[in-house]
């Protein structure tokens, strides 16, 4: 007998009679959202919650975006910036730092020596202050946003902002690898006190971009 058969057999024996097919649907009486159904208020909520968990949040219009990205990288003193290959080219239009587009061969060791990374995102969740990356357009492979110490992430409002976790999941494809990010890397392991900055990027800057 294989262990698979053994375990499945133990489960069936433990449960006794096969359970009758359930007529009652599972109780899902919780709310779909706790946030206001109004784009500007939702964006404010996202802003507050991101900042509450120590992300640095900036706002600008799509016209201002290239200048703001250049400014953030210059302030940081960034010399090399990694980007996914399909980042909209105009985003880096004003950037003077050396650009490193990931063609799929960038190693973790190489990225460890890179100062910053700039990406887009799949969506952002206002209620929890979360940015979701799913390796889709403008986001790149997972290691790209993991190894460098400074991550600049662009969120396009209102179309990429959802209110809640229940509204986010249906918009995401389970087949894609996902990283949900809520503030920079942190730990509560020392006396259950939250300290920002362990292995992931220690500085997370979020640019909330609205149409001009």
């Amino acid at each position: 007998m294989t262990s698979r058969d053994l375990i499945l057999g133990r489960i069936r024996a433990a449960l006794g009679e096969p359970a009758p097919p359930e007529e009652q649907p599972l109780p899902r009486h919780y709310l779909t959202t706790h946030a206001p159904d109004e784009p500007a208020a939702l964006l404010d909520l996202l802003h507050r919650n991101l900042a509450d968990y120590r992300a640095r949040v900036h706002r600008c219009t799509d016209v201002e975006l290239p200048a703001r990205i250049a400014e953030l990288l210059a302030t940081r003193g960034t010399r090399t910036v990694a980007v996914p290959p399909d980042l909209p080219p105009d985003w880096l239009g004003a950037v003077t730092a050396e650009r490193l587009a990931d063609d799929g061969t960038l190693t973790a060791a190489r990225l460890d020596a890179v100062d910053s990374v700039v990406t887009g995102c799949a969506l952002a969740i206002a209620e929890t202050g979360t940015i979701v990356l799913d390796a889709g357009p403008g986001q790149g492979r997972r290691l790209l946003t993991l190894v460098p110490d400074h991550h600049v992430c662009v969120v396009r409002a209102p179309e990429q902002v959802v209110a809640s976790v229940p509204l986010a999941l249906p918009r995401l494809d389970p087949a894609r690898p996902q990283t949900w990010i809520s503030g920079p890397s942190a730990t509560s392991d020392i006396e259950l006190d939250r300290v920002e900055g362990v292995h992931g990027p220690r500085t997370l800057e979020v640019l909330l971009v609205t149409p001009a």
């Binding site: 919650n49 968990y53 969740i125 209620e127 929890t128 202050g129 979360t130 389970p174 087949a175 894609r176 690898p177 996902q178 990283t179 949900w180 990010i181 809520s182 503030g183 920079p184 890397s185 942190a186 509560s188 939250r194 992931g200």
Partner: peptide, 13 residues
């Protein structure tokens, strides 16, 4: 951890 959301959640298939 008493947070609205923990800093990182990874999902892979």
């Amino acid at each position: 951890t008493a947070e609205r959301m923990n800093p990182y959640t990874s999902l892979w298939t």
